[in-house]
Computed example of a mutant assay.
Amino acid sequence: FIIPVDKSQTPLSPVHTVSSTETAIEFAVKTGSTPWELVENNHLSGTWDLLPGEILYAPSETITASTPFPNVSAISFNNLPIIQGETLEIEIDSSKQGEFSGIFNGKTLHFFTEDSEAYYSFHGIHALEEPGAYPLKIMLNSEDGSAYTFEQLVLLETGGYGNEWVNVPEDYLDETVIQKEDEYLSPILNQFTPERYWDGRFQYPVDEPCINSQFGQRRDYNNGGLFFYHTGMDFGVCAPNLNIYAPAAGKVVLAEDLTIKGKAILIDHGWGVFSGYWHMSEFNVSVGDFVQPGDLLGQIGNTGRSAGPHLHFEIDITGTPVNPTTWLSQEFP
């Protein structure tokens, strides 16, 4: 079971499985800690409260799970516990080629590799997912045909998002129209391009970025007309231009006028990662174009369900919007 992390402390990692003859002091010596730190880090009742087969945790710079897979040295998570609306990145380090797959909370995890040594999977955690413990399963089919499974519970915590109120024309609150548009975009956003196009941290999509609304805010439209959450971040017009730029390399897979999102663009960055741009006034690219960081995509506008000129910027992973600020501030993988 994953232990909640105090964000002011070094994260805890599952580093050891208790044997039938092991004592707390033996584990403490192996990890360079003390029996009392062991008790505190693992929420034990005392130094005697150890069960054979139990996974123990200790501070480390990387969050790495012990692994039952042959030729696999580590299964690493970018952040534990995971947070509503954030990106879950899983890395598997293997000395031999294998076919990895997984399931998190009933949803399929796809793994990709560029060197047959490091395997990556990216998964979007829904911003409205209830906090709690969720099952994670990772499977390996090795070259010799053997199958292995790694399972554990992963803790999901609240994202601490706030609330905001937005007023738009009533026509844009029709849930039938909203659902129809979501269903139209779903097959596009659930594609898996096996090649990773992006390299490094994503760039800001506008000059002189100023943020009008953050990701994850619980939204009340028109005083109870519709309740949802903000699936991206809104950039106001603070630069002497309306330019919108590609934040990373990728292929344009959508550029058209939609009812709710207005003039919209979607870019496939590979490995199930997409970026979206809503409410634009005009396009400078077409479907099929391959863009590089800094390429001009179009102009900020006020089309679709919009309360004023702005860019709604969104990052989607396998169809789930995630916090774009994370991709603008961190490098993946």
Rank of each mutant, 00 (worst) to 15 (best):
I2V: 11
D6L: 04
S8D: 11
P14D: 09
V18A: 07
T21F: 14
E22P: 02
E26T: 15
A28D: 02
V29P: 02
V29T: 14
V29C: 07
E37Q: 05
V39R: 06
E40Y: 06
N42E: 05
L44D: 03
S45Q: 13
G46N: 03
W48K: 00
W48R: 00
L56T: 08
L56F: 08
Y57S: 00
A58C: 08
P59R: 03
T62P: 00
P70T: 01
P70W: 00
P70Q: 01
A74H: 09
L80I: 04
P81Y: 10
G85W: 12
E89A: 11
S94I: 03
E99R: 00
E99F: 01
I103F: 03
H110T: 08
H110K: 07
H110N: 09
T113W: 02
Y119G: 02
Y120K: 05
A127P: 00
L136A: 09
N141I: 10
S142R: 08
S142F: 11
E151D: 11
V154K: 07
V154A: 02
G159S: 04
G162E: 12
G162H: 11
G162K: 12
E164G: 15
V168F: 01
E170H: 12
D171Y: 10
L173E: 02
D174M: 05
V177I: 13
E181A: 10
D182Y: 11
P187E: 05
P187K: 06
N190Q: 10
F192Q: 14
R196L: 13
Y197D: 12
W198L: 04
G200L: 01
R201E: 06
F202A: 05
F202M: 09
V206R: 03
D207W: 10
P209W: 10
Q214Y: 15
F215N: 11
F215Y: 15
G216D: 03
Q217F: 14
Q217V: 14
Y221R: 06
F227L: 08
F227Q: 09
F228M: 00
H230W: 07
T231I: 05
G236D: 01
P240C: 03
L242V: 01
Y245S: 06
P247V: 02
A248F: 11
A249M: 07
K251W: 01
A255K: 09
I265N: 07
I265P: 03
D268K: 06
D268S: 03
S275Q: 08
M280Y: 10
S281K: 09
S281Y: 05
S281L: 04
E282G: 15
E282W: 12
V285P: 02
S286C: 09
G288S: 08
V291M: 09
Q292Y: 13
G294S: 01
G301W: 14
G301P: 13
G301C: 13
G304I: 14
R305N: 15
R305M: 15
H312E: 13
H312Y: 13
E314R: 10
E314F: 08
P321W: 10
W327M: 03
S329A: 12
P333F: 13
